[in-house]
Amino acid sequence: MSLLEFARGPALWLSLAVLFSGSAWRIAGIFLLKSKPDFSEPRSTRLMAGAWRAIAGRMIPRKEFRETEKIGTINAYFYHIGLAIIVFGFLPHIYFVKRLTGISWPALPAPVVYFAVALTFVSLIIMLMERLTDPVLRLLSNFDDYSSWFVTFLPLVTGMIVINHPFPPGVAPELPLDPLPLAVHLLSVELLFIWLPFGKLSHAFLVFISRGITGAACARKGAAT
């Protein structure tokens, strides 16, 4: 079994199994805990609306905080949007998803994705620099922060190596001429899949739960979210 076959086969399935089962376990860990009934007279019973308002509304900081949190917030937009463009807009990634699920969608033009790669690369470096130099972030940071940064940055770097790597002409890109960089890229993505449920990258799904709970609680009180 070649390294690429391993990356596309057992390693991929193992990492996906860890990703989904680990994430499910983490969510179950929250929902299996008791939730105390609230007998206070609610000011509003539209709790779901409140939850969704918090989920959507917290994507944009309140005006009172925009000045103080400018760099961190704008940079976070850059790498989140950049990563979304790369993951969902790049043709080879769509091929990858199609091969696994049969689902596909139109790709973004390659230059747009390349621009997103550059933007995300710089943005993630800035993020790391900020974490290493800002006194608050340094105090809060632990192994999870740096490992999460690493497993996010690594697929970006290994992916950049694969970009423009020659494929046999005229056919769907099943196998590149040199399979090693692609195998390494795939393995780096699989590392991310394996780490995601255990570390802070799981905010990808936890964000809906924590914002939703607060949004519903605030709605009940008639308080702002």
């Binding site: 860990g29 929250i30 805990l33 008791k34 905080f65 809060l140 905010h203 964000v207 739960i209 609680a217």
Partner: peptide, 29 residues
């Protein structure tokens, strides 16, 4: 520890933004 506290405990991304909202941090750094 209940459902809400667990959700909160699991969710912190160590972004440190809360510091700028706190009067005790803002006035002491």
């Amino acid at each position: 520890f209940n459902r809400a506290t667990a959700a909160y405990m699991e969710s912190c991304i160590h972004c440190g933004q809360c510091a700028e909202a706190c009067h005790f941090y803002v006035t002491t750094r």
